[in-house]
Nucleic acid binder design. Sequence first.
DNA 1: GTTTCATGTCATGTTTTCTAACATATAACT
DNA 2: AGTTATATGTTAGAAAACATGACATGAAAC
Lengths: 126, 126
Amino acid sequence: MKEKELRRSLAVLPIGTVMKLTNLTARQIRYYETQELIKPERSDGNRRLYSLNDVDRLLEIKDYLDEGLNMAGIREIFMQKQLDQEHRKEQQSKTLTDDDVREILHDEILRAGGLQGMSPTSPKLR
Amino acid sequence: MKEKELRRSLAVLPIGTVMKLTNLTARQIRYYETQELIKPERSDGNRRLYSLNDVDRLLEIKDYLDEGLNMAGIREIFMQKQLDQEHRKEQQSKTLTDDDVREILHDEILRAGGLQGMSPTSPKLR
DNA sequence: GTTTCATGTCATGTTTTCTAACATATAACT
DNA sequence: AGTTATATGTTAGAAAACATGACATGAAAC
C-alpha cells in the first residue's frame, strides 16, 4: 500500500478547499501552523498546499480543542504519536530481521547438513 | 468501500494542481472540457474544481491521445465505458435479488414447516 | 492550399491567498 | 476588579492563480 500513502501525503489542496473540508477558518488553519501543529507545503507562488493527511490532522485538532486541550497539549499529543509510530516501525524492522535470521539459519542448515530426508523445497521451510 | 469512492469523487483540486499531476497545460484541460471529456465542478467564485477521478480521467485522455485517438474517439470510449459500468451494476443488483429470493424462500420454509427439529436460531440459518 | 484539430499565447478582469496589524472574547491569575 | 494570555475575528493592500475570449499556428486530412 505504498501508493496510497503517497496519495494521502501529496500536497495538492489549497486552503480554500481545506476550509470547506474541515469547517475551519483560514485564520484558524494558519494559526495552527504558527503553533507548529501542521506544516503545509508551499507552491512556487507561496500558496499553502495541504495533503489529505493534513486535513485529517486538522480534524483531529478540532476534536482535541473541543475536548478542551490547548495548543501545547495538542502539540504534545502529536509528538507522542510520532514517537509511538517510530517505535512501531522500529519493532517491525526488528521483526523483519528476525525473519531474515531464520532464513539465513535455514540456508546454513541446508548447506551444512546436506539433504538428510528433507526435500530442499519442503513446505515447512519458508 | 463507499467512503473511498466518495473521496475519489470529491471535487477539491484547483486546475494548477491538476496541471502538475497530469503534466497537461491549463489550455489542454479546459479544451477537453469543451469537448465534454471531463466536467469539473465549480467553486462559488467560478473556479474549476477537480476530483481524483478527474485526474485519472485526464491521464487516460493523455494515453488515448498518444495512441492517436481524437476527441470524438475518446468521447466514444468513455461513453462505452459508462454503459459497460451501468450494465455491471445492473447485473450486480440482479444477483442481489437472487439472494433476496433465497432469503424469502428460507423464511417461507420456516413458516410453513414449523420448527421440526431445527432451532429457530440455528447458526446454519442466517 | 484550404480546413480542421489541438494547442499556444496574450489581454483583461475576478477570485483567492498572502502577510501583517489591530481588535476582542474568554479564561486564568494576582 | 484589573491584567495577561490564548484563540480567533476583521481589515487592508499586494501578489498569485484562474476565468474567458480572441487571435495565432503547426500538423494532418482532404
